[in-house]
Measured scan of single mutants.
Amino acid sequence: MQYKLVINGKTLKGETTTKAVDAETAEKAFKQYANDNGVDGVWTYDDATKTFTVTE
């Protein structure tokens, strides 16, 4: 399945996608991506759209 990440950071904004077997695996990949880019915020997930959002 394909999952999307929407980033609403202080210095980084945008979107990225990943393919993963489940939401938990996608979340780990997205959190690593956010961490690598210095984004630390509040996470939400919408199962209907398979979209994670992180807001600083």
Results as ranks from 00 to 15, higher is better:
Lys19Leu: 15
Asp36Tyr: 08
Gly38Arg: 06
Asn37Gly: 05
Thr49Ile: 06
Val6Pro: 00
Ala48Lys: 11
Asn37Trp: 13
Thr16Asn: 06
Ala34Pro: 00
Thr55Lys: 05
Val54Gln: 00
Val54Ile: 11
Trp43Gln: 01
Asp46Phe: 04
Tyr3Pro: 01
Gly41Leu: 03
Ala23Gly: 04
Tyr45Phe: 07
Trp43Asn: 00
Gly41Asp: 01
Asn35Ser: 14
Thr51Ile: 06
Asp36Thr: 09
Glu56Val: 10
Val42Ile: 12
Thr25Gly: 09
Asn8Tyr: 13
Leu12Ala: 07
Gly38Ala: 06
Asp40His: 14
Glu24Pro: 11
Lys4Gly: 04
Met1Cys: 12
Thr53Pro: 00
Asp40Cys: 12
Thr16Arg: 14
Gly38Trp: 05
Lys13Leu: 08
Asp22Asn: 11
Gln32Asp: 07
Trp43Val: 02
Asp36Gln: 13
Lys13Trp: 09
Ala48Asn: 11
Lys19Val: 15
Thr17Pro: 02
Met1Trp: 13
Lys10His: 12
Thr17Arg: 06
Thr53Gln: 05
Lys10Arg: 14
Thr18Arg: 07
Thr49Ser: 12
Asp46Cys: 08
Gln2Ile: 15
Lys50His: 13
Asp46Lys: 03
Tyr45His: 02
Tyr45Ser: 01
Tyr33Phe: 12
Val42Gly: 04
Thr18His: 08
Asp36Ile: 10
Thr25Gln: 13
Ala48Leu: 11
Lys13Ala: 09
Val6Tyr: 08
Trp43Lys: 00
Ala23Trp: 14
Gln2Phe: 14
Thr18Leu: 15
Thr17Val: 10
Lys28Thr: 08
Asn35Ala: 15
Leu5His: 01
Asn37Val: 13
Phe52Met: 02
Asp46Leu: 04
Gly9Cys: 13
Gly41Asn: 01
Asp46Ile: 05
Thr25His: 11
Lys10Asp: 06
Asn37Arg: 15
Lys4His: 11
Ile7Ser: 02
Asp47Tyr: 08
Thr11Lys: 12
Thr16Glu: 06
Val21Met: 13
Lys31Cys: 05
Lys13Tyr: 11
Ala20Trp: 04
Asp46Tyr: 04
Trp43Phe: 04
Lys50Ala: 07
Asp46Pro: 00
Glu24Leu: 12
Asn37Tyr: 13
Lys31Gln: 07
Leu12Met: 12
Trp43Ser: 00
Lys28Ala: 11
Thr51Asn: 02
Lys28Glu: 07
Glu27Ile: 12
Val39Ser: 03
Phe52Pro: 00
Thr55Asn: 06
Asp46Ser: 06
Lys10Leu: 14
Thr44Met: 08
Thr25Arg: 07
Gly38Gln: 07
Thr16Lys: 13
Phe30Asp: 00
Tyr45Leu: 02
